[in-house]
Computed example of a mutant assay.
Amino acid sequence: MSRVCPATSALAPQEAERLAALPGIVMDADTEPYHCDYAQHGPDVRHTACVLEQEVDGRSVLWWLVWGNEGQRDVVAAPGCRKIVRNETCLLIKGHPGDCDQEIGFTREELRGGLR
């Protein structure tokens, strides 16, 4: 599935610093713009991008930048979808709109393999 939503947002430097201080970081947060992870969604759905992964007590914790078109935004820890699509894990936030998608970037397994 190719990305269609053109929305982008970036972490503020203090948000990136706060995330960088967390223990067990697997995937670093960045202040470069993140693209919305959703291919398509309605106007009532907030944009979402995974900005950090950390390992806590042997389990993965995902941090997401969630924002709306009116400027409201949050950085939250929330589970990923984890549904298997064509032998790979969906990379979207749990409860996402639309179809599952594992083509928005590296899989969690690829990230872990490349960073160890």
Rank of each mutant, 00 (worst) to 15 (best):
R73Y: 12
D37M: 04
E15R: 10
P6R: 01
A20H: 14
E70F: 09
G114N: 08
V45M: 13
V56R: 06
A77W: 09
K94L: 12
W67C: 08
A12L: 13
H41D: 09
A77S: 15
L91V: 03
E53M: 03
D28H: 11
C50F: 03
K83R: 15
A39P: 09
L19N: 00
L92E: 01
E103Q: 12
V76F: 09
M1E: 03
S60Q: 10
G71N: 10
E88H: 13
C100W: 01
K83F: 07
S9N: 15
V76G: 07
S2G: 12
C90H: 09
V45R: 14
N87E: 14
P6Y: 02
L65W: 06
A77F: 04
A16K: 12
P79H: 11
A20N: 11
T107H: 03
N87Q: 12
E110A: 10
R112F: 01
D37Q: 04
C100V: 01
G114I: 05
V85R: 07
T8N: 02
G71H: 11
R116K: 14
V45S: 10
I84Y: 00
T107L: 02
E109V: 00
V66E: 12
A10V: 00
G113L: 13
Q72N: 14
P43D: 13
P79F: 05
D44W: 13
V51R: 05
T8I: 12
K83P: 00
T107Q: 03
N87L: 15
G58F: 00
G113M: 12
R59P: 03
N87G: 07
W64D: 05
L11T: 11
C81H: 10
R46I: 04
R3T: 04
A10Y: 03
R82S: 09
S9G: 07
L52A: 08
Q40T: 14
I25V: 15
E110Q: 15
Q72W: 12
V45G: 05
E15I: 12
A39R: 10
Q54L: 11
A20I: 07
R18P: 04
L92Y: 02
D30A: 09
L111K: 03
I93E: 04
G58T: 07
C90N: 06
G80D: 04
V61E: 05
V4K: 14
L19T: 06
Y38R: 05
Y34S: 02
E88R: 14
T89Q: 12
A39Y: 00
C36E: 04
V51G: 01
E109Y: 00
A7Y: 13
E53K: 04
E110L: 08
P6V: 03
G42I: 09
S2F: 07
I93L: 08
C81Y: 06
K94I: 04
Q54D: 04
G80H: 02
D30C: 08
I84L: 14
G95A: 09
V4Y: 10
W64Y: 10
L62N: 05
C50I: 01
R86I: 02
A77N: 12
E15N: 08
L92D: 02
R73I: 06
T31Q: 05
Q40Y: 11
E32I: 06
L22A: 10
